[in-house]
Design a protein around this nucleic acid. Structure first.
Lengths: 159, 159
DNA sequence: AAGCTGACTTGCCTTTGCGCAAGTCAGCAT
DNA sequence: ATGCTGACTTGCGCAAAGGCAAGTCAGCTT
């Protein structure tokens, strides 16, 4: 199997999924909002308090994220209250869980303070800690970056 | 097992590994430099060309990343050439592979153009595509975010 | 009708990231 | 000694992100 790393300059990164993903979820506050959303937060003022950004920034970020289809703005009504809106994760947003988990794992290992990490994700069924790991479609676990880079259908070659 | 999501306001996110990770690798260009570094790029002008940022920005980013211990600046000497420096991944940097892979997977699914993704990571041994998946320490694969959030040693409670 | 409150918006200012163009600097080749 | 080249640095200027303070607005409660 050809490994595209062997001739890195023969293809461009114009159509790069990493870059496209970063264009959508690349800012610190967007990631922290996703962290909170995945923990169950839905209301504006809860996001403001728990993420720790100001209201103007939060309003702008949430608007962007709804436009990007990470969150959906949904009206709801508590008894005796007026209609409000909450921000629910879409499937597109929920599928960022491996990204957030991988980031949390890395931060736990390389950037935690002396006390250790504040929270740990655990498997509901068995209580064991959860990690983002690399696995191939045949079910093999990937050891130490034992991967090749193969051409996808959207590859732009040059030269 | 207690699930901390049930009382989200009883603990703070001051010591959050996701936020700490984002403080280090939170910018678009840092992630794209990591993408290239994981593809094998090491030299300054290769980074500039392949990532697509200008020299001043690249110099600043690389300096930050060396200071953050993601990259190491190492002198080398090709025969007949003067001494130069290259940027090699540290272990800390290399362990961002699951983060980059998770981002790439997500981008492939949710942000690729019509043609599809440009590159696919494959398992060297079997050629099957590689994905970042969630797995617990007991070996169970996590279905659909079937996780709890448990207290870690560094948790800051309040109230 | 007046008040309250959650959810924003507006205005202003600072910081950070990045682009472009030009300048610098080290040290091998000639 | 001069030139060349890779690897930067310097000096602009712009745009986006975010903080703070204050204003707005809808609609349920009283």
């Amino acid at each position: 199997m050809e490994d595209l790393r062997d001739d890195r300059d023969s293809w461009s990164s114009e159509n790069c999924s990493v870059a496209r993903a970063m264009d959508i979820v690349g800012s610190r506050s967007t990631v922290l909002i996703m962290r909170e959303a995945l923990l169950g937060t839905r209301r504006f003022d809860d996001f403001v308090r728990r993420v720790g950004v100001g209201e103007p920034a939060m309003a702008a970020r949430l608007k962007d994220m709804v436009a990007a289809d990470l969150l959906e703005r949904i009206p709801y009504r508590e008894p005796g209250q007026r209609t409000r809106h909450e921000y629910q994760l879409t499937r597109k947003g929920r599928e960022l869980l491996p990204v957030i988990t991988a980031l949390r794992n890395w931060g736990d290992t390389w950037a935690a303070d002396d006390a250790g990490p504040s929270v740990v994700a655990t498997h509901h069924d068995c209580g064991q800690p959860v990690r983002a790991v690399l696995r191939c479609a045949a079910g093999h676990e990937i050891e130490d970056g034992d991967i090749d880079i193969a051409a996808g259908p959207g590859l732009i070659r040059r030269g």
